[in-house]
Each structure stands twice: as structure tokens, then as C-alpha cells.
């Protein structure tokens, strides 16, 4: 998670207008999810991987590691789609029969599972593209422009900021405890961890009160108004992104017929 956050601030696509990146990621994701064929999602997976690794400069090992996380979840998820229990084993590609009930993989289900897997992976790579190239602060800027209530955005920004403060506090308490042998045995570990959690709550409460004081000192009246940084809008980027998305849509249409067509079995 912290890798993602660090790369979001240091990648080469940081300077690109967050609105452009957001639009590109969402539009591509819609095409990916709407595609009836497996070709488009696969193209998108490679396209996004290429963009993130070569354009944004994220090391490929890191990207592969990040992708393997949702991929492993997906494998387990689609396995339940592929496997089926039936009284007609003749429909199955492979299966075992136990007392008249067959457990196995049917050809239709296998297609659906593969399709689902590719689509999900495509969608995930779109989201990775966004989160690896766009810092949270800039993402919230886009949400503000989209008209999300400011209360939600303020909450988001405070939570985001204080995740780091909270983790730092927890880490400090943990270090203090373990340097006094707080985690020497299983029993002590449970005790120390419980104390850590309780103290963290109290500390969080105290620092929230101090935060309120410090904000009030700067004339806080209930709304966290902040100024946004300007980003240049690049016409070139917009054209490139439009062409890429158009091509993706064309692939989808020529292969599967109709963006909103039924899932190809």
C-alpha cells in the first residue's frame, strides 16, 4: 500500500492533469467491462502494464507483484464459477462422478470464467494505472470537480492524512513496547497488543482535539477550504487517450458485436 502511495508521488506521469488520467482510466474500464469478448480486456491489461512500466516508470517487478495480489483472488473467485455440480456428466469437459452427482468443469462455464477473469484483471489494471500515477490529494481534486459533497472529500482527506499519523504512533508504541520485551512470549504479546490498541485510541482522541485547536487558531469555521494546485491541460494527451480508447472500442465492436451485447459464451 505504501509502495503505491510513494509511486503515486514520484512517477513520471505525476505532472499530467489528474482529470486526464481519471477520465482515461474510467473510460477504459467501462470499455473493458462492457466488452463481450476476451480480446479487449487482454489488450487493456497489456496496454496499462506498458503505460505504467514504460511511461510512468514504475519498476516491472513492483507492478507484477501488485498485479499478482488481485490475480490470486480472482483465480479463487472464478474457480467457483468454473466448477459446477450436475446430474448430467456428459456436458462436462472433465469431472468426477460421486453417487450419481458429477462435479466438474463444463465448457460453457469455463468460457464464462475465463471471460470474467480477463475482464476483472483489465478493470483492476485500469484502477492500478490511476492509483499508481495519481496521488490521493489530486484524485480528491477530481472528485471535488465532479461535484462530490465537500463533507465527504474533507473526511477523505483527513482520513488519508491521519492514516500515516496513526501508523507512526502505533509503530512508536510497538517499538517502545518491544524494546522493553513486551513481545517476549505469546501471553505478553497478546497483552501488549491489547494495550497498544487501547492506547492508540486514546492518543487518536487526544490528537483529534489538538487538531481542532490548531485549526481553530487558523480561523476554522467548519469547512476545510484549501487551494488547489493548477495543472496544465495537454491537448496532445487528450488526443492520444481518445485515439487509444476509440481503438479499444473498435476492437470490441469488430470482435464481439455491440458493447452491451451478451457475455460471449
Amino acid at each position: 500500500m505504501f509502495n503505491v502511495d510513494q509511486y503515486a508521488y514520484s512517477n513520471r506521469l505525476r505532472v499530467v492533469h489528474p482529470g486526464e488520467k481519471f477520465t482515461f482510466a474510467i473510460l477504459t474500464m467501462v470499455i473493458c467491462l462492457g466488452s463481450p469478448s476476451m480480446v479487449t480486456p487482454l489488450v487493456i491489461v497489456f496496454l496499462m502494464a506498458g503505460t505504467v512500466i514504460f511511461r510512468a516508470g514504475i519498476p516491472w517487478r513492483i507492478y507484477l507483484k501488485l498485479m499478482s495480489l488481485p490475480a490470486s483472488f480472482l483465480v479463487i473467485g472464478v474457480a467457483t464459477v468454473a466448477l459446477s455440480i450436475s446430474r448430467h456428466p456428459q456436458n462436462m469437459l472433465y469431472g468426477i462422478t460421486l453417487g450419481g452427482v458429477a462435479i466438474g468443469v463444463a465448457a460453457d462455464d469455463l468460457g464464462t470464467a475465463a471471460n470474467l477473469f480477463c475482464k476483472s484483471l483489465g478493470a483492476v489494471s485500469c484502477l492500478y494505472f490511476l492509483s499508481l500515477t495519481t496521488p490521493m490529494v489530486e484524485f480528491m481534486l477530481v472528485l471535488r470537480r465532479l461535484g462530490l459533497p465537500s463533507l465527504l472529500i474533507e473526511l477523505m482527506s483527513l482520513i488519508y492524512r491521519f492514516i500515516f499519523v496513526l501508523l507512526k504512533t502505533a509503530d512508536d508504541i510497538y517499538t517502545a513496547q518491544s524494546s522493553r520485551l513486551g513481545y517476549i512470549s505469546c501471553k505478553r504479546s497478546y497483552l501488549s497488543l491489547g494495550q497498544l490498541a487501547a492506547n492508540l485510541f486514546i492518543k487518536a482522541y487526544t490528537s483529534s482535539q489538538i487538531l481542532y485547536t490548531t485549526l481553530s487558531s487558523r480561523c476554522y469555521t467548519g469547512e476545510l477550504k484549501v487551494l488547489e494546485t493548477h495543472y496544465p491541460v495537454s491537448r496532445k494527451n487528450i488526443i492520444v487517450m481518445a485515439i487509444v480508447d476509440l481503438l479499444l472500442a473498435l476492437i470490441t465492436l469488430s470482435d464481439g458485436g455491440g458493447i452491451f451485447g451478451k457475455i460471449h459464451n
Partner: peptide, 30 residues
């Protein structure tokens, strides 16, 4: 409060924004 500004001891409790620019803009915007 516009005329009397306080810088608190622990910057971690004072800084509420994840962006340096946004953080500094808070006061003058108010």
C-alpha cells in the same frame, strides 16, 4: 486569530492536509 498566529509544538498535530501547498493555503483562504 487573524492577528495572533500560533505555531504549535508538534507539527504532526497541526498539519491536517497531505499536500504542503493545500496545507499552507488553509489559513489565508479562511
Amino acid at each position: 486569530r487573524k492577528n495572533v498566529g500560533i505555531v504549535f509544538q508538534d507539527p504532526d498535530t497541526q498539519l491536517f492536509s497531505a499536500s504542503v501547498f493545500q496545507e499552507i493555503s488553509f489559513g489565508p483562504l479562511n
